[in-house]
Design a protein around this nucleic acid. Sequence first.
DNA 1: CGAGAAAGTGAAACCGATTTGAGTTGATCA
DNA 2: TGATCAACTCAAATCGGTTTCACTTTCTCG
Lengths: 344, 344
Amino acid sequence: MATIHDVARAASVAPSTVSRHINGHSVRQSEAIERAIEELGFRASASARNLRKGSTQVIAMIVPDIQNPYYAATVAGAEEVGRENGLRLVLCNTDEDIELEKAVLRDIVGRVDGVILVPASERSSTALFEAPSAIPLVLMDRETLGPRRFDTVTIDNFRGGTLAAQHLLDLGHRDVAIITGPLTASQSSARERGFLETFAAARFVVPERFIERGNFREDGGYQAALNILSAADRPSALFVINNMMSMGALRAIGHLGIKVPDNLSLLCFDQLPCEGVISPRISTIRRPMQEQGAMAMRLLVTRLRAGDREHEPRTLTLPVELSIAASTQRLAGGGDRGGSYTAA
Amino acid sequence: MATIHDVARAASVAPSTVSRHINGHSVRQSEAIERAIEELGFRASASARNLRKGSTQVIAMIVPDIQNPYYAATVAGAEEVGRENGLRLVLCNTDEDIELEKAVLRDIVGRVDGVILVPASERSSTALFEAPSAIPLVLMDRETLGPRRFDTVTIDNFRGGTLAAQHLLDLGHRDVAIITGPLTASQSSARERGFLETFAAARFVVPERFIERGNFREDGGYQAALNILSAADRPSALFVINNMMSMGALRAIGHLGIKVPDNLSLLCFDQLPCEGVISPRISTIRRPMQEQGAMAMRLLVTRLRAGDREHEPRTLTLPVELSIAASTQRLAGGGDRGGSYTAA
DNA sequence: CGAGAAAGTGAAACCGATTTGAGTTGATCA
DNA sequence: TGATCAACTCAAATCGGTTTCACTTTCTCG
C-alpha cells in the first residue's frame, strides 16, 4: 500500500504538504499531488490518522437483538443524524447477553468516538465510560445502575403501562394477564409497574399466575403465553410488553386455537414485524422509534462537539400513545367481526 | 488516558516489557505491571496497535437492509464463526443504495481486516478490493461484475426459481405472476430465470403484465402486488422473490380482500418475519441462512490465515428447498380450509 | 516601491503501541 | 569454576499519518 511519503516523493513535495492537500487546505501543487494519489492508488491509513488525531469519526451502536425491527428503526434514525454530522455508524449485537456485551464494549472502545448502548440489563457494565477522559456514552431505552449517570433517551414506559391498563379497564376487562421481561430490565419493569398499579388503583389485583416473565424474544413470549393461556381459567385480556414476545404470544394463541378478540383481547407494546399482514389488526402502545435513535445521536454529537463533561447528563423521555385496533374488544360485548389466528 | 509508557514507569520496566506482558509473553515483573495497569486504568490504544500490527481483528459485514430478518440470521452465523476465531463483527447498513454503499466501503476499509458484503447491485464497486494488497472481501448472496472474482457464498437461486415454478405447475397453475427485483440484482434475476424458464419449458409463457419489479422492500412488494392483482384478469398463483416484498404482497392481498389459497396461491422466497403467526402458513423456498453467514466468515478466515492470494476465488453454492404449506393449492381443487387475509 | 499581512512550505516532532537487535541475567552441565 | 544456552530486558526504530515551528513566497495597499 502506498503511503503519504510515496505520494510526496512522486509529486516532489513534502509529506506534510500532501497531508494538507488531503485535508482541504489550499496547496499550490494540488494537481500534481492529485495525480500522484491517483497513480499510486493511495488511501490514507485510518489507523495512522486515528492515532494522530485521536478520533475516528465512527460511532458504535450496541443493541441486544438486531432481529428486532424496533432496533432497526432506531438505527435508521441514528444513522441519518450521524450522516448529517459526518459520522459513520456501525452496529454490534449482544444477543441480550451481558457477558457478550461486556466483551463487545471492551473491544469497541478505542475504535470509535462514541457509543449508543441499549443495555442488556440494568447491571450492564458502563465502567469503561466512567472516567472523565472516556468517550461519550448515550443510553437508549433502558437505564443502568452504577455510580455515574449518562445521557439517556427513553420513552415514558410507565405511562405506556398505564395507557394499556386503562384501555383494558375501559373495555371492562378485570382478569388480565401480562407477559413482561426480566426484573433487571428497567424498561419492562416500568411498563409492568404502570400496568399493575393502574389495575391496583382500580381495585383489581393481577394475580401472580397471570404475570409471566420472558426473555424479550419470540420463544420467550411463546412459552409465557402457553403457560398463561393453557390453564383452565384464562384471562380475558393479555398485555405483552414487547414486540418480539408478542410474536411468540400470537403463535401460542394460534396453536391453542384461541380467537382474538372474541376469546381474548390482545394488547402489545411496539409495532409488530407482522403488522399490516395479519388480521385482526393488533392494538398497540406506540412510540417514535426513528426519532428515538435520532435523539440519541444528537445527544452524542452534542457531547462530542462540546467536549465538555460539564453539563449534567440529560434524560429525554419521548411520549407513547395508544393505537386502538381490532384485537381489543369490550368484554362480553357482542361484536363478532375480526378474524382468527387458528393454526392452518 | 494512560499510555503504556505510564505503566512502564509505574512498574519500573521498559514499555517493551509491558507490551510483551500484555501480549502473553512470560515476564518477570508481571505482578507489578498488572498492578500498575489496574491502578492507572490502562487500556491499550487500538489505533496505535492497529497501526503497528497492520491488523484490527475486526470484520465488517455490509448488508442492504438490516430490517430484513434474513440478514439478521446470516449475521448471527457469521458472528459465531468470527467469535471462534477471535474476530469481532460490526455491521453496516446500505439501504439498498449503491452510493451509500460506496461511501460505507470507503470509510470502512482500513478500519477492518476483512469485509463480508451483500452487494446492493451487480454494479457495486469492489474496486477497493482489487489491488493485490487489499484486504479480503467475501461476497454474499449476490455477485458483482468487475474484473476480479471474489470468494462468494451464494445459494442455488436458479434452482429456487425452478422449484417454485415446478410446484405451481404440479398444482395445475398456468396463469402465474411473479414479483421480482431489479434487473441489476443477480440473485433475484437468477430466481426469476429459473421460474420463467421452467414455465417456458412446459410451454407456458408468463406474460409481461404478470412480471413486476420491486425494490426488495415491503412497500415495493405492496405496490407490485397491487398492480398485478387489481387488474381484471388475475393470475391463479403468485411467486414473490424475497421475504420483505412478500410481506408487502400479503398486505396488498389483505386490502384487496383476496382469499389465500382459495382465490390465489402464494409462494414466497425465504422465511417471512410473520411466520408462525399468520394462517394459512405460507409455502416458501428456504435456504440455510445461518449457515450461509457462517460459511462467508469461514472463507474470510481462510483468506486471512493463508495470507495468500494464490488459490482461486471459491464460490460456495448452498442448496435450497421447497417447503410446502397451506398457501399453495391445487387449481380448482375443492379443498376449503385455510384462513383469510382480509383486512379487519 | 516597500512594509506588513497572508498564504504556503518543509523538517522534525508526535500520536502510542510493537518489534528488532544487542545485551544481561540466571540456570545447567562438564 | 567456566562455558553454553535459554529466558528476559532495554533502547531505539517503526508503523503512517498530522501538527508545529520557523521560514519563504506572494499578495495588498498606502
